[in-house]
Design a protein around this nucleic acid. Structure first.
Lengths: 236, 236
DNA sequence: CTAAAATTATGATAATTATCATTTTTGGGA
DNA sequence: TCCCAAAAATGATAATTATCATAATTTTAG
């Protein structure tokens, strides 16, 4: 299920996309020494809502859904994490139980950094604390946007912005601009759990978008054809 | 409109409820020297979404609604701040424009601490940075709850939890337990902008709650009679 | 205290979205 | 490659919530 594997932090492909960017060499070395890396198969749970964090997860490859389970058992996906994302630091820093769970959406490579090392680094390297604080504050700004959208926009509009967001997440080569074909690969249920609606509603709306030539679907895969038109969904 | 007033930080009544708790005396003195305090009348805007933050606001007395304006002009209230709350530090720290506006709901007393002093303190006092980080991370956990609730719960359920939350916010003497009578004083429209629904819907649901003897209303004021039953709204 | 403005209330109706039942399709493992 | 469970699709219907119009009432300002 979980296979150990070695990936050196020094030459890690996603280091410079992560919050570890700019750390002094000796700190990177220290993380490298204490971390453990593993392959996870699709559908595995990295951490579970309500449990106590023992460290942080640094995503190297693959996608992970971060979600919260509502009172009625329905999941609400808070974000889709991918390479370079650091997961679980908020609960660790605020000394709380995980408010969310993390589950792999594909086969992934993830490194684990134990609590003591992470917190130690936080006290030793003030600039790292600043970076974390900055990242957290930035994320909160984005969350207010999400809250406003959930509270005010129709399901149709929310699906449109979700597809645009996922287009970025699933873009293998963001630098290439609109040339690359991005394939969003999520179940309709997961999509529904991002947008906050029923699976059937997502299926029907995707059908509409397809009729309107805004997207193209091939099995589960979704390709965004007209991002500009998708932005304007809802603006009549 | 805005009247300057002096309140010493050393003897500030809300200092120990704020993030400034535990700061060294010389830092408190420094804040005290550089801050400016003012009375604001009901309905005044402290800071406006989309503008650049010049400092942080520390609420001394009164309530302030923090909200984001949606594309269609409808406001979504993200939180109701009261004594001891620090506003605007997230945008300052992440060096972004305000994602939200702040408007007084009553006559308030608010202190302003300029950007340079606040950021200076952040670099001088590592423990303050830690505290801010912790507070931010904690707030994010609460936000995921809010997101889940908006995405999954019915308006009726959301109104119930909102009333319970406001009961705390408007409690003048939280230490007294359930003995004190708490009066929630918000327009139906503001309530609708917290819950994320139409004003008419809020009016109708409040009427229902009143019929069910869960609350009592007197003009605009709302009194929660049965918090335990309100918690269970939606659990059939 | 009074009048105007703002807010609250109520009714009728329409639009959106959820739910449930069922069929079809798909994709991943033996 | 085939099979089977999971996912997607479709239809019918119900429930929830929004919208618009208008009346009643409370608040606020002078």
């Amino acid at each position: 299920m979980r296979k150990q594997v070695y990936v050196g932090c020094e030459e890690c492909g996603v280091k410079n996309d992560s919050l570890f960017k700019g750390l002094p060499d000796e700190e990177i070395e220290n993380i490298n020494y204490h971390k453990s890396c593993a392959f996870y198969k699709k559908g595995q749970i990295l951490f579970h809502e309500g449990t106590r964090p023992l460290g942080v997860y640094c995503v190297n490859q693959g996608k992970i859904k971060v979600y919260r389970t509502g009172d009625d058992g329905k999941d609400q996906i808070i974000k889709i994490a991918s390479g370079g994302d650091l997961l679980g630091y908020k609960a660790l820093v605020s000394d709380e139980l995980y408010p969310v769970s993390g589950e792999t959406l594909e086969n992934t490579k993830v490194c684990f950094i134990p609590k003591s090392e992470f917190l130690g680094m936080l006290t030793r390297v003030p600039s790292f604390g600043q970076q974390l604080l900055q990242a957290a504050c930035q994320e909160m700004g984005a969350m207010t946007q999400n809250i406003t959208s959930l509270a005010q926009k129709s399901v149709r509009e929310r699906l449109a912005v979700t597809l645009l967001m996922l287009k970025d997440t699933y873009d293998v080569d963001p630098a290439a601009g609109n040339e690359t074909e991005v394939e969003i690969n999520l179940t309709r249920e997961d999509l529904a759990n991002i947008v906050g609606t029923a699976t059937e509603t997502i299926i029907r709306l995707l059908h509409d978008f397809k009729d309107e030539k805004l997207i193209e679907t091939k099995g589960r895969k979704i390709k965004v054809l007209e991002p500009e038109k998708l932005v304007r969904v809802g603006n009549i």
